[in-house]
Amino acid sequence: MIGVMNAPVDPGCVSRSDLNWLLHRAAQKLGAFAQEAAARHGVTTRGQLVLSALISEEFRRSQLALGQALGLDKTTLTAELDRLERAELIVRKPDPADRRVRVPVITERGRAVQAEVEKLHVRVESEFTAGLEPAEAHVLRALLQRLIVSDHRPDSGSCL
């Protein structure tokens, strides 16, 4: 088991019922375990998010477009790309159409790390939702996706 998912909970914390608090607390708990899994491979959860985006792209994106797609501001994304580049998980290449623009590209090592961390994240999510029936976990995911896409206001802040 990754982390200690069944640690005692402060009863004062679980009595809250407002949706914002519940979503935040669930994300906080799941995020801590996901970060622990990512750290085993020397990346942050945000780094895994970037690697996953780069591995899934069928086209190349500038740093600016990648940041916009992930909801990461320029400073946050640049710092994360610096870390990933130092770890040789990505390289930043000049865009052939505009040499002033940098395009992050995942390396083979980055692909391997991303795949390993993805496996751990799947395991973490399975352990986190183990108290739910499979159908309940599916409904939870579907409802959260619906809530996210139904809000047509612009995204604000980082997705992590």
Rank of each mutant, 00 (worst) to 15 (best):
M1K: 09
M1F: 07
M5R: 04
N6Y: 02
P8A: 09
P11M: 08
P11Y: 07
G12V: 01
C13Q: 14
C13D: 14
C13V: 14
V14H: 02
S15W: 00
R16C: 07
R16H: 13
S17Y: 05
D18G: 01
L22V: 14
L23W: 06
H24W: 04
A26R: 03
A27T: 02
A27P: 00
A27G: 12
K29S: 10
K29P: 00
G31M: 03
A32F: 07
F33C: 01
A34S: 12
A37W: 01
A38L: 11
R40W: 04
H41V: 00
H41M: 00
H41W: 12
V43D: 06
V43H: 05
V43S: 05
R46Y: 02
G47Q: 05
G47T: 04
G47P: 04
Q48T: 04
Q48P: 00
L51V: 07
A53N: 03
I55Y: 10
I55N: 15
I55F: 09
S56K: 11
E57I: 00
E58I: 05
E58C: 02
R60E: 15
R60V: 12
R61Q: 13
A65L: 09
L66A: 07
Q68S: 09
Q68V: 06
Q68C: 01
A69W: 02
L70S: 11
G71A: 08
G71H: 08
D73M: 02
K74T: 14
T75R: 12
L77C: 08
L77Q: 10
E80F: 04
L81S: 05
L81V: 07
L81I: 12
R83K: 13
E88D: 14
E88N: 13
L89Y: 13
L89Q: 09
V91W: 03
V91E: 15
K93I: 14
D95G: 03
P96C: 03
A97M: 10
D98C: 07
D98P: 04
R99Q: 11
R99H: 13
R99I: 11
V101S: 07
R102S: 14
P104R: 05
V105A: 11
I106C: 12
T107G: 09
E108P: 02
E108I: 12
R109V: 06
R111E: 15
A112T: 08
V113Y: 11
Q114C: 14
A115K: 11
A115Q: 14
A115P: 00
V117E: 09
V117R: 07
V117C: 05
V117A: 05
K119S: 15
H121A: 10
H121V: 06
V122D: 14
S126H: 13
S126C: 03
S126P: 00
E127W: 05
E127F: 06
T129H: 06
L132S: 07
E133L: 12
E133I: 00
H138Y: 12
V139S: 05
L140I: 06
L140S: 08
R141Y: 10
R141W: 06
R141H: 13
A142M: 07
A142P: 00
L143R: 09
L143W: 08
Q145F: 09
L147D: 02
L147A: 12
V149I: 14
S150F: 08
D151H: 06
D151Y: 02
H152G: 11
R153W: 03
P154V: 05
G157Y: 07
G157T: 06
G157V: 06
L160K: 01
